[in-house]
Amino acid sequence: MLPVRGLIRAVKQNPNSLKYLQLNLLRHGSYFTSKPVGDPSKYTDYEITQNPEEWKYVERLFVKPRIPTPKPKDSYPSGWTPQTVDPEKCTWFVHRNKAHMMPVYLDISERGMRRLTKIKKVDGDIWAFYKELKPWLEMVNRGKILGIKVNEVQQEILIHGDHVNQCRRFLLDRGF
């Protein structure tokens, strides 16, 4: 579609370039509906180049297949912190997600009235984590009894209310 627009503009700018029109710059629906390649003289001449300097610019555009572990730095101005906990000393462990972020999420539903805090990727003894988390959260929330659900099969913990920052603080303090 759009190459044709460029083509029309080229013709308008240079009305004598019918040669350009004659060149088959059509885009067919599929490989099977397109006509077979014809006489090479009717197609524009091109050169094949293999320049490593130019190829570097193409490689820039490739998407990385996975996110590599961030290299250690002196400071992180954005406030992101890497995981510093020693897995050998843990009975329970909260993995970082693929983006190396903390797996604490907020689910909002019922037109914003229902807010659930979800902590995912809890490995190891999830009940020990629950026993540590519950009194700490209730203390931080001034003694309010919170509804906390432990989902052992899916390795998740669900907390009623918006306690995302509190849970992040809890995990950060322990190096997760």
Partner: peptide
């Protein structure tokens, strides 16, 4: 890993 460039002057 190659780049095709047009030779035609008009193009």
């Amino acid at each position: 890993k190659v780049i095709l460039k047009p030779k035609d002057n008009e193009l």
